[in-house]
Structure formats: structure tokens, C-alpha cells
Design a protein around this nucleic acid. Structure first.
Lengths: 232, 232
DNA sequence: GACCGGATTTAGATACGTCTAACTCTTAAG
DNA sequence: CTTAAGAGTTAGACGTATCTAAATCCGGTC
């Protein structure tokens, strides 16, 4: 049996593995889910018993094949829902996260298929994140890095905006910080502000945002760079 | 705080009050929800504490204003979802119940409004049941009775089909037993079979189905009889 | 008016997911 | 090599929702 809460843990662990690599520590998981460390420990024990992850006491966990499949299915639900809400129900990109976060655990396989085909099987969600395919293979991650890993003078293309906060997202969209946009880093100030420039205009970002904006080099720009992001 | 499970209890009590009138007994609720009587007792105590219903020990419960509002909101979600699935995601009328049953507890007010307006605020769901309005006033129930309350020779119009079983629903649709259809009862056989006739054809129904098909007299037919039922 | 049967409630137990408080392990510094 | 800080775990508890088994209530029958 797997519950909505187990799905949240597995999804979170998947994302942490993606960002920092396995093994993932108990506190990182607890923080991400806003629970206490003992709560996370308990749940990790349980997930390990069900062979959804491998657990090394005092060190961390790593998803098994099976655990990863459940994580990917949950993420697929989440991102398809986000895309659907934007495309068919006029949601703005900053509004979709919370709605998708609840619904992702409760839609049927059938529902998933229907919205996927209604959307014509989009490769990415409104934030530029890849939507896992129905076979639940881990998507091949593009060669992207946070904006904050780049230096002044470099020109990059925004791949995805991994920001949750609605207000920040609304601001970023207004500023044109959306997937597909090409930007040049003009300057990184001593206080960490990123001064950016695109065709038309210049804009500034604090470092905290630069951590969550993933980009690829404009040089290494592939065809994927021109993919349409639904609804934006 | 109200949970998905509390919503299910309140919704069930509302439906039982609608069909049999208050007070509603513990076992009826327990049966409808497939739980044991002690489980229902416990939950009813809790709902009474939260002033969602009035409870007379050993006798039964009756929804308060507040409890009824929650029930109606849940039912509104359910029926709007059913209508949306049929209209926009190509579901058949026998497929929508289970999907809506899960999702009804997890959609936001915002989502509710968006699908309602996308559907142009339909008055009824695909089974002909009225959709409570956003202000959560109890809908004025049309003057309908089960088909099984009628006699041979009477002509009636189907108002709603309160059947859950998918296979039965598929059969009924094939047989043209859908909301809005006018039928004449040709004969009720000694074993309870209803032999029906419409413009085109004749068909038979067991009594168990006749209990769940709600009709109004063709004589008393109002304009409401010609309401479009979305997607059928 | 006592009694019986069915409905209802009480009592005690379990599983899940959470908490705080206290303890233990690992690691990096000195 | 020792130790202190921080990460992780154990212990004990709580609230929700469920169960089975046992006790109790209520309405109708004789």
C-alpha cells in the first residue's frame, strides 16, 4: 500500500537526489516536508521495509527502482496537472503548484492519460521542468546548472524556474524570467545581485533567485531550447 | 478542521436525509460507507461535538446548517467534476463517479469556480442530479419519485438515474434510460420487472433498477424537463 | 409487564503519521 | 586521541479512523 504521504516523501527524495545526489540525509527530507527529524526517520524505516528505498542508518537513503517509479509517477501527475491547469483552465504559472500538489495523489491512471493526450503529451511543464513519460523512465536530464553557477559575461538560456513562491513567480514572469529566454549576465554585484540583459531590457535578481533558475549555456543551445512551453 | 472522511460522512447523511428524511440511523450510515456500526458511532460523536449535526443517542442524527453546507459543498464538487469529466475529458457517464468521488475532497474553491464557469454553471450533472449552487443553499428538490412508486399505464419523464454501478449504467444508457426521456409503463410483471415503452421501442427493467430511477409525471412536466443534460 | 431481537453504544486494540524529550552516533577540530 | 557539535535515532505520547467483542437500549410481542 502506498499513501499520499509516502508519495510526498518519495517525490521529495527524488528531487533531493536530483539536486545533491544520493544518499539523502534525514534532515534534508524532514526540512523539505516541514516535519521533524524523528518523523522522517520513522517514515524512512517504513519505506525501507517496503523496498522503496535503501537505507543506511545514520547516513542516508537512496531510492530503489520501485521507489523511483512511484516518485516519477507522482511527479508526472504533478507536472501534467500544472500544464493542464494553465492550458485549459486559465491558471497563471504561479497558481498551479498548490492545486497540483493536492490533486497529484488522487487522479487515476485514466485521468492522467486523458489530460496527457488532451495536451498532446507535452515534454515540459509551465516552469520548464521535464514531464516524466508514462513508462516512468527517469527523464534524461539536460545539461543545466543554476544561474548562480555562472559568471558575469556569460550568455545563457533559461531552462526551468524551480521557484515555488507565488509572489516571486509573478514577479519573475513580469520581468521576463521564463523558460526559453536568453539572457546575458552583465554583472554580479558584491551583494550577490545578478544584473541581466536580454534583447530588450535589463533586470536584476537576488542570489536566492539565481539558485533556483536553471540555465544552459547559449553556446550549447540545442533544438530543445526552442520548445514551446505550454501557455506562457 | 474537516477531513475528507468527515466530508464523506456528511455527504452520506445528507443523501440519506434526502431519501428517507431525518433522523438518520447509525447503521444506515455505516452501511452506506462500508464501515462497522461502532466506527460510525464514534465519528457521529465527533461530528456532533463540532456542531455539524445533532445527535440523539440510540435514535439518530440530523445535519445542522453548518453540516449541511459542508455536505452541499462536497456534493457540488462531485457533480461539477462529473459534468466536467464528461464535457471536457470524454468520460462516459458510468466512468465519472469514482474519479469524482476521490477528487471532490481535494479541489480548491478556485478550481471549483473555474470548472463551473467553463461549463457555464450547469444545473444538473450527467445523471440528472441537481448541482448545488455556489451559495450552498439546499437545492429545491423537484417533485420526483422512484419509478418503482408508479403503476402500469402511467407515463413519466426520467429526472435522474441514481445508480452507481458502472456496468448497470452502461446498460441503461444503451437502453435509452437517460435523464429527459419520456417512458410509459406498459406492465409490471409479478416478479417485479418493469416493461417500458417510449416513442421508438420497448425495454425491461428489474425492480432494483426501478428503485434508483427517479421520475416525474409526464403530466406535471415542466420546462425543466427539456433541460439539456451535458454531454449525453 | 416481562422478554426478545435488532440496533446502538462501550471497551479495548491496531495502524498511520505526527510530536517532544532524551539518547547515540559521526565527524571534524584541536 | 579526545571531544564537542550536529545529525540521526529511540522512547513515549497523541489524534484520527478503523476493527472485534461485549454490553446496553428500545420497540414490539406474548
Amino acid at each position: 500500500m502506498d499513501t499520499a504521504i509516502m508519495e510526498d516523501y518519495l517525490k521529495t527524495i527524488y528531487e533531493l537526489e536530483r539536486e545533491r545526489g544520493p544518499p539523502v540525509g534525514t534532515s534534508a527530507i524532514a526540512d523539505a516536508l516541514s516535519v521533524t527529524a524523528p518523523t522522517a526517520t520513522r517514515m524512512l524505516e517504513k519505506l525501507a521495509e517496503e523496498d522503496l528505498l535503501e537505507r543506511e542508518k545514520y547516513s542516508g537513503v537512496e531510492l530503489t527502482e520501485h521507489g523511483r517509479a512511484i516518485a516519477l509517477e507522482t511527479i508526472r501527475h504533478h507536472r501534467l496537472l500544472e500544464a493542464y491547469l494553465v492550458e485549459h483552465l486559465d491558471y497563471e504559472w504561479e497558481e498551479v503548484h498548490d492545486e497540483a500538489e493536492r490533486l497529484e495523489h488522487h487522479i487515476s491512471e485514466d485521468f492522467e492519460e486523458r489530460i496527457a493526450s488532451e495536451l498532446d503529451h507535452p515534454p515540459v511543464d509551465p516552469h520548464g521542468e521535464p514531464i516524466p513519460s508514462a513508462d516512468l523512465e527517469a527523464p534524461v536530464e539536460e545539461d543545466v546548472e543554476p544561474l548562480s553557477a555562472h559568471k558575469a559575461g556569460e550568455t545563457v538560456v533559461i531552462a526551468s524556474v524551480r521557484e515555488r513562491d507565488a509572489e516571486t513567480l509573478r514577479y519573475l514572469e513580469e520581468e521576463g524570467i521564463v523558460p526559453g529566454r536568453e539572457l546575458t549576465i552583465v554583472e554580479i554585484t558584491p551583494v550577490g545581485t545578478y544584473v541581466m540583459e536580454c534583447e530588450c531590457d535589463s533586470r536584476q535578481l537576488p542570489e536566492s533567485s539565481a539558485d533556483r533558475i536553471y540555465v544552459r549555456s547559449a553556446a550549447a543551445r540545442s533544438d530543445a531550447a526552442t520548445e514551446e512551453v505550454p501557455g506562457l
